[in-house]
Structure formats: C-alpha cells, structure tokens
Design a protein around this nucleic acid. Sequence first.
DNA 1: CAGTATCCCTCAAGATACTG
DNA 2: CAGTATCTTGAGGGATACTG
Lengths: 147, 147
Amino acid sequence: MSTPQSLPYEPCPVARSASLVGDRWSLLIVRDAFDGIRRFGDFQRNLGMARNILSDRLQKLVIAGVLEMQAASDGTAYQEYVLTAKGESLFPVIVAMRQWGELHLFLPDERHSELIDKQTGNPVSYMTPVTETGGVLTAGMTQVQKI
Amino acid sequence: MSTPQSLPYEPCPVARSASLVGDRWSLLIVRDAFDGIRRFGDFQRNLGMARNILSDRLQKLVIAGVLEMQAASDGTAYQEYVLTAKGESLFPVIVAMRQWGELHLFLPDERHSELIDKQTGNPVSYMTPVTETGGVLTAGMTQVQKI
DNA sequence: CAGTATCCCTCAAGATACTG
DNA sequence: CAGTATCTTGAGGGATACTG
C-alpha cells in the first residue's frame, strides 16, 4: 500500500471525503461499482489502469468500508468487490458530478454515456432530482449505458 | 501550467468532472470560494499549499470557467477570484461530499466545521436536501463556520 | 483469473528566491 | 501583497514478470 493519507487531522468533511475519493481513480472505481462491476479484471479492463494501482485502491476502499469482498457469485474461488451501505451512500456524490459534467463539460451536441433508471428504462438526466430525501433516485436503481 | 489533462476523449461525465476537480486541491479551492475566500493570499494561507501550485490551479479553474478574475473590491491593484455561475453550480457536489463525510468519516462525537445558512443562521446538516429542484439550498446562501 | 512484487519514470507538490 | 521562476523531491502511476 502506498498513498499514505498525509492529511493528519482534517476538520472539514469535504476535505476528508476528498482525501479518500478525490484521487485519480477511486471515484471511477466507485462509479463502476454502481454500474455493477464486481471483479478485479473487469475493473482493470474497463478503467485501463495498472493492476498494482487497482489493487491498492480496492484495498483502500475496502479498508474504508466503501467496498466489501464477497465470494464470487459464479462459483470460482475468487472474490468480488461490492458496495457496502456506506459505499452506496456515495450515490449523490456520483450523480452530482455526473450532472455537473453533463451540463458544463460537454458540447451541446456531444454524446455522453447515460445513467439508466433500471425500473423505468429512462435516462437520468441533469434535470432529475438527486438527493432529495425520499426522492426519485436511490442507489441501485440505475446503471450506466455504454454508447 | 502543468497537469496536462491526460484524459483525451472521455465519454463519461463523472470522469470529466473528476479530471477537472478530482485532484488534491481544486475542489478545496472551490470549497473556499463558496466560503467567500477571494484573494490569492487567503487561499494560500487557508489551504497551506505551495504558491506555485495554487497559481496553477487558479489558472486552470479560470480557464475552465469555474472562477473568474475581478478587480479587487478593496481598491488595491490586485485581482480576486470569484465563482462564476458554472462554478456556483458545483454546489451540489460540494454539499454531497460534505454530507457523506459528516456521516461516514467522523466519529459520533467528533466535531467538524459547519456549513451555515446565511439567512437562517442554522447549520446545514446531512439531513438537508441539496439538489432538489427548487429546494431549500442554493449556492451563495451558505458559509462555512470555523470551529 | 486474480492478484503481488519490482522496476522505473513522470509529474504533482513543496520550498524558496525573485519581481512588479 | 500577488504572483512567477527555478530547483528538488517523493509519491502516484505504468509496465511487466511472477505466483497461487
């Protein structure tokens, strides 16, 4: 394990969150986890990142309680990484960043990957409320559609 | 300028947002901007970061349209960095990360800095709705209270 | 396939001196 | 005070070989 969190005592919750998930890869791993990706090789191929770095980040996310390891669902001897409740509660962060990116980092006619509501089949656009208590979206309701 | 965004074509809005604001300092600069910090020296002291890095990040955020430079409000010859509309719309991201951090990265009895609603004077807790359309909070209504 | 161990290298970040 | 320029360092990240 590298990346020694060199933020010793940090009173700001934003800063603590950023120190955990505000690096180049961790948030994208969480995003992929929301997309249903569970296995080491799938994360690695989808993100195109080095295996040692992926291993490091997965360990950190497990230690932080964002992911947990489970026995593989297909009967093989390996592990799968799935979101914990703590990890699922990162959903508003992911969607907020999605919405901001859609609105401000894409040209009007530029296509981007979609977040699909599994129940209705409709895309979750930047108009969709996110963190409203009791609102429309909850973690696990959506998946990313590749385009 | 360093930090060459080495993400050439990125179809995922989350990834694009992360490439801009998902580094060690940028998001904290934006957080400070929401807190009303405007001047180079104030950012530098508050964040305790190197001046050259701060200069680089401020430039990038200006180029990205998140911040804009204005003549100093106190009559000095210097500039101030203030959030644009695009920057203010990062508010849900900041608050989502705040709420997650408050809930999951602090011990039950551990204190953290507060986000204060300027109009009511009440702290914005993790129970407060964030991105609900027409909801309670909008950018500019809040400030961080040091504890 | 799922990792771990090594090697290497770039670049982000820090420190500091300098300028208008 | 508000930056810029320069130098150095260390860690983050990539490539790849290796193991169960």
